[in-house]
Design a protein around this nucleic acid. Structure first.
Lengths: 108, 108
DNA sequence: CGTGTAAGGAATTCTGACACG
DNA sequence: CGTGTAAGGAATTCTGACACG
């Protein structure tokens, strides 16, 4: 039961299917990996495998590219978003510690 | 947004990956299809594509096969389970209609 | 019945490169 | 920069069949 996160993040989809799902060419998909926008896993013999989350991310990327946003900028945005998430996690962790010491107040 | 049910039922996984995920040989997976236990979709050029739900079903099948259950019996069980489900759906539909006419009583 | 395997062919995927711009 | 394409090879998948049991 405690195997992998979920159907959404498990990397099982080959590049051909991702191409169909996103409308992007395989060339584009590989290039976005080169630019560090997506991180597929690899099968034993080196074939790329993507998750549904990756597919959605690629669709977002495709939309931004259509708007003329460069891969570099997309990457910057992604990194910034991740930092925000980390900070949020830290805040929540801190709050958890405080609650653990001073007791949990439910509903203020 | 109203595209496909969910990550669980969308058929996007190739037989090789299904084989890794289930521990079954491709031969076995194809055979269970022949016996009408699984129903993959096909890509444009004929390659089988499975869903996570299919993968789970195949794992169930593998377990039953280990117990010595024959594919024919597994199929019978699946068909029976499906009939039960349909009846349940009908009952719920009927209840919905009754509620629509006579008003909805929440909680008994 | 359920599964392995060799067979031959077609389609997939991979990498590195040249092209254009 | 972002993407297309031809190149060559390796791995994948497909079907129908023979084998064993």
């Amino acid at each position: 039961m405690a195997e992998d996160p979920s159907y959404k993040t498990r990397k099982v989809i080959t590049i051909g299917v991702v191409s169909e799902l996103t409308g992007l060419s395989e060339r584009q998909i590989r290039y976005y990996e080169e630019r560090k926008l997506v991180f597929p896993e690899r099968s034993a013999k080196g074939n790329r495998k993507y998750s549904f989350a990756d597919v959605e991310l690629l669709i977002d990327i495709a939309n931004k590219r259509e708007e003329g946003v460069q891969t570099f900028e997309i990457r910057q945005d992604m990194l910034r978003a991740e930092k925000r998430k980390e900070k949020k996690k830290k805040r929540e962790l801190l709050r958890g510690e405080i609650n653990a010491r001073f007791g949990i107040q439910k509903e203020r």
